[in-house]
């Protein structure tokens, strides 16, 4: 299938600092793409570039195969974005929701469209007459989302849509977003710290770190600091006195990742070059992408995910609360910088 949006060789700089470096990224039509990564990893920058609200320093962006530039053209009318801190115009809720429709000179029944938008985000029609300052944080966020939904965008980009709202608003926002996809086949790109939600709804997850896309994932994120250990290895201490071993980091405060697939349950012996970790099982669940049971464990305060296949006996030994021994190879730790 032809991707709806295709990024090629995109680099973006803020002054001298490289904020984003994406050699290639495809967003398929009608898909839900999740963006994960710590603060400052480039999620918002990527969203703004996808939303045509910022022109990347170099590289091309194609929408349905046609190169497009920021701020201009028909494409920017089909792609819309809900920023992390949306701004409500100093007007009524009605005028806020109708703003985008008016820009597009959409005739027809504005009033009905606004009413529909309010209903989508679970707000009473009486909200239309309220002024911008008469809304709670959650209501304001929902009004901002309604202003995007009424445009029936081909692609909706959301930057932390539920980060700063109450539980009820968060649920209503999640429902409204999924409703848009079901009804109109809207392509969704969502940046969020809410990993379990992303995990639940996304077709693809993209992990960003320092502006780069990670090959694997951000599970098993290992923060520093690292100190030299025996035989050329480096170690990071865990709270229960154990230590994690890894190869030589570029800096003592580098961050590493241990891919879930490189951890296995120890049955019997430790193989040549492997290290041991004693952990407590937190949960056992079915991994959406692996379609296999996976483990979530805690090793001296460090959460880890294990996704190597488990047999029946092993599953039995891994009931939550049990202690298990995991083995890994220090050279499998991937450095993020």
């Amino acid at each position: 299938m032809e991707p709806f949006i295709l990024l090629q060789g995109v680099k973006h700089f803020y002054k001298e600092r490289l904020a984003l470096d994406i050699p290639e990224l495809q967003i398929e039509k009608g898909s839900i793409t999740g963006l994960a990564g710590p603060n400052g990893s480039g999620k918002s920058t990527l969203l703004r570039i996808l939303a045509l609200a910022e022109q990347c320093t170099s590289g091309t962006l194609l929408v349905e195969g046609t190169p497009v530039w920021a701020y201009a053209g028909k494409a920017s009318r089909r792609i819309t974005m809900l920023p992390q801190e949306p701004y409500l115009l100093r007007r009524t809720v009605y005028d806020n929701i109708a703003y985008g429709l008016r820009l597009r000179n959409k005739g027809g029944d504005l009033k009905a469209a606004v009413g529909e938008g309010l209903a989508l985000v679970g707000l009473d029609p009486s909200f239309a007459a309220r002024r911008w300052h008469e809304l709670s944080g959650g209501e304001a966020q929902r009004v901002a989302l309604a202003a995007r939904l009424v445009l029936r965008p081909s692609c909706l980009l959301l930057d932390e849509p539920t980060a700063s709202v109450d539980v009820k608003s968060g649920l209503l926002i999640q429902q409204a977003i999924l409703h848009a996809r079901e009804q109109w086949g809207t392509t969704l790109v969502i940046a969020s710290h809410n990993r379990s939600w992303l995990h639940d709804i996304c077709d693809h997850l993209i992990f960003l770190y320092n502006g780069r896309r990670l090959e694997c994932c951000l599970d098993n994120f290992l923060p520093g600091p690292w100190s030299p250990a025996e035989t050329g290895l480096w170690q990071a201490s865990l709270s229960d006195g154990q230590a994690l071993y890894a190869g030589k980091p570029s800096r003592p405060d580098s961050n590493g990742v241990l891919p879930p697939s490189s951890l296995r349950l120890m049955n019997g012996t430790l193989r040549e070059g492997e290290r041991l970790l004693r952990c407590t099982v937190i949960a056992i669940y079915i991994d959406k992408y692996l379609h296999a049971p996976s483990l979530q464990v805690n090793c001296g305060g460090q959460p880890l995910v294990v996704s190597s296949p488990l047999d029946e006996d092993e599953l039995d030994a891994c009931r939550p609360g049990r202690e298990v021994n995991l083995c890994y190879r220090p050279e499998n730790v991937i450095w993020l910088d």
Partner: peptide
Amino acid sequence: HLRLTLVSLGASPRQIFLTSLW
């Protein structure tokens, strides 16, 4: 955040100018 909001809603530079003034 005003500018980003307006751009994301598809406003042209002229529309951004007029809305910002308002």
